[in-house]
Computed example of a mutant assay.
Amino acid sequence: MLEQGLANVGPRRAEAIVAYRRQHGPFLRVEDLTRVKGIGTATVERNRQRMTAGIRTMPAGEPPRKEAPRSVPRR
């Protein structure tokens, strides 16, 4: 899906981004994508508004979402 949302990122570069992330962990800054072979500063700048980086966490005070409990049938 990366290749569909980012300019100048085709399937090969998208695979390189995913492989790099699997090996090294999440990108902490958008600029860190330049460490991936084939992704330069021009590509990052062209796509800056479409990208996010960092470890996603739940906002403070919000409990994790759980499935609603099922009702128990009455006898």
Score class of each variant (00 low, 15 high):
22 R>E: 12
8 N>A: 12
48 R>G: 00
3 E>N: 15
49 Q>L: 01
16 A>D: 12
54 G>P: 06
37 K>C: 06
58 M>V: 13
44 V>S: 11
23 Q>W: 05
34 T>K: 01
59 P>C: 08
3 E>K: 14
70 R>T: 07
18 V>E: 05
70 R>Q: 08
15 E>Q: 13
38 G>N: 03
54 G>R: 13
51 M>D: 03
22 R>S: 04
31 E>V: 13
45 E>T: 13
11 P>A: 01
50 R>L: 13
53 A>F: 06
36 V>Y: 03
10 G>A: 07
22 R>L: 09
67 E>N: 05
8 N>C: 05
74 R>D: 07
26 P>M: 04
46 R>Q: 10
63 P>E: 08
18 V>P: 00
39 I>D: 01
65 R>W: 15
53 A>M: 05
18 V>K: 00
6 L>E: 00
9 V>Q: 02
68 A>H: 02
64 P>K: 06
21 R>D: 04
55 I>Q: 05
26 P>C: 02
56 R>C: 03
15 E>V: 02
9 V>W: 02
74 R>H: 03
55 I>R: 04
58 M>Q: 15
66 K>D: 02
14 A>I: 02
14 A>T: 01
65 R>K: 08
2 L>K: 07
64 P>M: 08
66 K>M: 04
9 V>P: 02
45 E>L: 14
3 E>T: 14
19 A>E: 09
45 E>N: 13
62 E>Y: 15
51 M>N: 02
29 R>N: 12
37 K>G: 11
16 A>W: 10
22 R>N: 09
35 R>L: 13
60 A>N: 03
32 D>G: 08
64 P>G: 09
67 E>Q: 11
7 A>N: 04
47 N>P: 13
31 E>S: 15
49 Q>C: 00
1 M>T: 15
16 A>N: 14
41 T>R: 12
59 P>T: 05
65 R>E: 10
54 G>Q: 09
64 P>E: 12
24 H>K: 08
28 L>V: 12
33 L>P: 09
61 G>A: 08
16 A>K: 14
50 R>V: 03
53 A>C: 12
63 P>K: 07
